[in-house]
């Protein structure tokens, strides 16, 4: 599992991905971790196949008892099907996820972990005084869907928005936006169902100060590529399968 430190201040953001041992028949995913003084949040901790390499990687940064919070941007298996295992490994932890998906996500196994339901308007997660905002991104692609925005680190974890289907082992940051576009086009046109929801999300996100846009698949965008992505996405027709 490749580990990339994407923010270093009084706390850290680490991106995990590009696992060489990942089975070929499952989609590659990016997991993110926010580590503060005594706590740690795992954002979209991944599918059941990824539990062991992910936890093994996290142990390079924090002990098990400091993994206090999990966040699921939505209900998909590549996001959170590992829940049944985290539930046994971290019985004191909390899972922050949509209230709409509670009864669905719990099918993955959630006996010990506390499910903290997120209302449609979003909310926040406070880790040792670091306030992370939960930004609504409904229908992007899931009907109840959230991003995480960190105003201090200026990072937006955007879930499936900005995702790309890439060859294994690709770089973690976009290095040539124009070349990258074709890796994103089908993903966004087919998995994002609503142009209206897209416009609402873009309007909301343009008001945020973002240095890094960090999707759950493919490469992260930084600097000017963040706005390039928003412009490109704004002009893209989505929901093409009807």
């Amino acid at each position: 599992m490749k580990m990339t430190n994407i923010y270093e201040g009084s706390y850290q953001w680490i991106m995990f991905g590009r696992d060489k041992n990942k089975p070929d028949n499952i989609i590659d995913t990016n997991q993110y971790m926010v580590k503060t003084a005594t706590r740690c949040l795992l954002i979209d901790p991944g599918g059941v196949e990824l539990f062991a390499p992910m936890l093994a990687a996290v142990l390079h940064y924090v002990p098990v008892d400091q993994i206090t919070d999990l966040f699921a941007s939505h209900q998909d298996p590549d996001i959170i099907s590992s829940l049944g295992l985290w539930d046994q490994a971290l019985p004191e932890a909390k899972l922050h996820a949509s209230e709409l998906w509670e009864g669905f996500i719990k099918h993955f196994g959630c006996d010990s972990i506390e499910y903290v339901p997120i209302g449609d308007n979003g909310g926040s997660i406070n880790l040792d005084g670091i306030e992370l905002q939960i930004i609504p991104a409904h229908y992007m692609h899931s009907s109840a869907n959230f991003n995480i925005y960190d105003p201090q680190a200026k990072i937006l974890m955007s879930g499936d928005i900005g995702a790309a289907l890439e060859a294994p082992g690709s770089p973690v940051f976009v290095d040539n936006f124009d070349l990258h576009v074709e890796k994103m086009r089908f993903f966004h046109q087919r998995w994002m169902p609503s142009n209206q929801a897209k416009r609402v999300w873009i309007d909301r996100v343009r008001k945020l100060d973002i240095d890094i846009l960090a999707p759950q698949h493919g490469r992260m965008f930084q600097g000017d590529d963040v706005n390039r992505f928003l412009d490109w996405f704004e002009s893209l027709q989505v929901g093409i399968a009807v």
Binding site: F51, A52, P53, L55, A56, A57, L59, H60, Y61, V62, P63, V64, D65, G84, L85, Q88, A89
Partner: peptide, 22 residues
């Protein structure tokens, strides 16, 4: 299954700073 997976974590995190916390 959890036990099997945690044994895998143990094997894969031998060089990790916090492996003993497992």
């Amino acid at each position: 299954n959890v036990y099997t997976q945690l044994k895998l974590v143990e094997a894969q995190s031998k060089n990790a700073a916090y492996s003993s916390s497992l």
